[in-house]
């Protein structure tokens, strides 16, 4: 009986030793394998390429100084994966705001990602509960100058019985809303190749 208990205890210890440990990934030094699906490194790379291209192109240099006001238009996920396109757009918004050249409006967008409080606080104009001098008057919202739209495309192809290639294209367009002209366009392709056993959706 005692021997059985010892063997069981040792067996449990061995099983515990084999269990995969959970770790927090250090993004600066991550040497993890690249999956065929999109991961954080792909979004970071696509966003960085877009921002670098926008800033170095000079199209965001407003004549006379100041900042452009940008609205977020539709960004379509045309991949086989469930992606929140904000993984891409939020990084771009942060970097453009940091550059001092662009500020993004939360008052209007094509994908519904506006701040609900903008309208909510205006509904309270007639409420006696709020101090009159702190109420927001009419005509304060700023019409955007630019619109950012885009699409993420995925294309799968089988190279042979054991290898498949997955191509992703991050396409973005910056449109001048005053005249409808696309003043900047960018495409970042990310091509991955791996086993047909890997799943890319």
């Amino acid at each position: 009986m005692k021997r059985f208990a010892v063997v069981t205890f040792l067996g449990l210890l061995m099983l515990a030793g084999c269990a995969q440990r959970n770790v927090i990934v250090d993004q600066a030094t991550d040497q993890g394998e690249t999956p065929l699906a999109l991961d954080y490194r792909d979004f970071e790379h696509a966003a960085m390429s877009a921002v670098q291209s926008m800033l170095s192109s000079g199209t965001l240099d407003k004549p006379g100084g100041g900042r452009y006001v940008m609205a977020i238009s539709r960004v379509t996920n045309d991949t086989m994966q469930r992606i929140d396109t904000d993984q891409l757009i939020k990084k771009i918004r942060i970097a453009l705001l940091q550059s001092g050249k662009v500020v993004t409006t939360s008052a209007i967008s094509a994908n519904g990602s506006t701040d609900a409080m903008i309208n909510q606080v205006r509904k309270e104009r007639v409420s006696p509960e709020f101090k009159s001098s702190t109420k927001i008057g009419e005509g304060q919202l700023i019409t955007p100058d630019l619109s950012l739209s885009g699409k993420i495309i995925q294309r799968n192809m089988r190279e042979n019985s054991s290898t498949q290639q997955v191509e992703y294209y991050f396409q973005l367009t910056l449109t001048n809303l005053r005249n409808g002209l696309a003043i900047w366009e960018g495409e970042t392709p990310i091509i991955k190749r791996g086993s047909t056993d890997s799943v890319a959706w």
Binding site: A28, E44, M48, V51, Q52, K91, I94, A95, Q98
Partner: peptide
């Protein structure tokens, strides 16, 4: 710190 300081 910035997105533009990421490894490329």
């Amino acid at each position: 710190p910035s997105l533009l300081a990421a490894k490329t």
